[in-house]
Write a protein that binds this DNA or RNA. Structure first.
Lengths: 344, 344
DNA sequence: TTGAAAGCGCTAACAA
DNA sequence: TTGTTAGCGCTTTCAA
């Protein structure tokens, strides 16, 4: 199956290549009859444009890069990517993921990005860029749109939830249930140096609990393990539960930075004989699939919609429009399920 | 930031473009000193190749298409994609997903695919192609690799688990636990016309239960709902549980076609007063995140590894190698957790 | 070891 | 309404 070019179609239809180009791209200045004929020949010959040739000639790649931290299979990334795909693909764009694990990956991305036009735009998720990178982004001539980015600096547009405010909502909710001692558990293993939400949520928790009048001794914060020793997940979580049990004041409610922490924690709590929610309440963050499965009270966000909105902004920017609201904040909502209870 | 071209680098380094091209691609026939100089200039100017220009000139796009059914956020797809990404990106390839929801999407993909070289290879997940499409794939000059494909026809290589055999393992396991009546629940809402695993697993269940000596009245199979009425997920699942409860013989064990079915089913079973595993055992398939969260006994498969292997085969094919084992079968393993019990 | 030159398949003026 | 003509930025013979 030799590849058919626009010239083949032109010859078959008895017209010039530029006419074919115009016809097939739906431009005007082509008579209905010629267009019809060209379209038929194109179909018959299974013609489709070579993207490479088109982009080389036009300067537009019809591709957008999606920069994702750590993995595409994480709940947030996968759904955000899907939302982006949904709208960008309809507009004719290919979307190319770039997954960043290490600082080196990120540096490489930035080293190559500015120099050449391999994509028309970049959409980025959750990165906490350093100043140098924000500079680079800011100098880019292509649109850069952020999802759940901690700052607007260097971005042309963005969509994000308010992590701090959402966490504060959780704290106030727990206070209203009468909880006297709160614990906050970060992701115990956090290998990502450039992602922001954990930090913001922790900040939100700390500030809100102070604002709600909790004294220092009524707040237990368990940070990420700085270096990962060879312990199993089970060991890590039983360690956490042990610390909770042996705290001067045992917490009556536990917040976690993401739902993913809730499942193993819940299992350990129950294994240690704590009943949830009777002995201790547990609140997650994200509302992913495991949250539903575990009947976990949690803070809901909609990453697919975040992706869609980011993509729509990108599209608008690509069309040269000016956004009247470049940065939008998405609402979150507390989903009440079975792991929280009023303190009796 | 104007885009730097290979000509800029050539000028800066005082050599010709072809020398720069050779040097930067690591080819020989370049003296160490010139190479050094060129590399420095390239870095200084933030040069990187225009993929479009390279592919136009070389005929290689350095891109592979990944054809995915329905969504990229599903557990299998996301992890398989990640596995592919991991190995292809290291080899310098961009990987671009094509997500197919409708038959039209699929047709469009096939209409465009053969005619032109926009990708160097395609990796495909779980599609049950019709004969015409298999033809098209077979005639393609680029490698086509399948993941969990039901047939090898039209593919140059593939990786898959044995859905039927895995399901048979589950049936034998339940028999060995003394279960006398088995139920099989398909995904109640299945909007995908072109995906295969459901069908294979059901077949595996039916054949194995016969082979194990279960009589027809000891087998309850609940197929997908053919048309989706407006019922909520809860209603659907309580309907299923109601049917199970009112069956002539109540099942002592339930198999589901995928873990995703297990979570809502489990919830409904418990709501209706069935204790799992005391009153009824439940076995999933896939071992996704909810399986862990729910402590579900299930059949484990590793989609990321499937993706990696598919990618490695693709790479080998791209390098013109002949695979000594084009089609490989991946092992699955039964993970015993808390939702199964011996019948007393 | 290096360079000149001819495309790759298309788009975008411009001319007809 | 259509065709002609330059490129787009690279790779790839082929000469030097």
């Amino acid at each position: 199956m030799p590849r058919t070019t626009i010239a083949d179609v032109a010859q078959a239809a008895g017209v010039s290549v530029s006419t074919v180009s115009r016809a097939l791209r739906g431009l005007d200045r082509v008579s209905p009859e010629t267009r019809e004929r060209i379209e038929q020949e194109a179909k018959r010959l299974h013609f489709s444009f070579s993207k490479s040739a088109s982009s080389l000639a036009s300067g537009k790649t019809m591709r957008v890069a999606v920069l994702l931290p750590n993995e595409i299979s994480s709940w947030f990334n996968a759904h955000a990517f899907e939302g982006i795909y949904e709208v960008m693909s309809k507009a004719g764009y290919d979307i190319v993921p770039y997954i960043v694990w290490t600082q080196d990956d990120l540096d490489a991305f930035f080293q190559n990005l500015p120099g050449n036009r391999n994509v028309d735009a970049v959409i980025e998720a959750s990165f906490d860029f350093d100043e140098a990178k924000k500079q680079v982004l800011g100098n880019l001539t292509i649109p850069v749109v952020g999802m759940n980015a901690p700052s607007t600096h260097g971005l042309d547009a963005g969509v994000a939830i308010d992590d701090e405010a959402s966490m504060a909502t959780i704290v106030r909710f727990l206070k209203s249930l009468g909880h006297k001692t709160l614990a906050y558990i970060e992701q115990p293993i956090n290998t990502t140096p450039f992602v922001c939400s954990d930090r913001l949520r922790k900040k939100g928790f700390s500030e809100a609990s102070q604002a709600c009048g909790y004294a220092d001794e009524d707040i237990i914060v368990m940070p990420s393990l700085s270096h990962i020793d060879a312990r199993s997940e089970q060991d890590i979580y039983s360690g956490i539960v042990a610390q909770l049990l042996s705290a001067p004041k045992q917490p009556t409610a536990i917040c976690v930075s993401v739902d993913a922490v809730a499942a193993p924690l819940l299992k350990e709590l129950r294994r240690m004989g704590w009943r949830v929610p009777q002995d201790v309440s547990l609140v997650g963050f994200d509302d992913d699939d495991t949250a539903t499965a575990l009947d976990l009270t949690t803070m809901h966000q909609d990453p697919a919609e975040i992706g869609r909105i980011a993509a729509r902004k990108t599209l608008a920017l690509l069309n040269g429009e000016t956004l009247d609201e470049p940065f939008t904040v998405m609402p979150t909502s507390l989903v009440l399920r079975g792991t929280t209870e009023r303190v009796s």
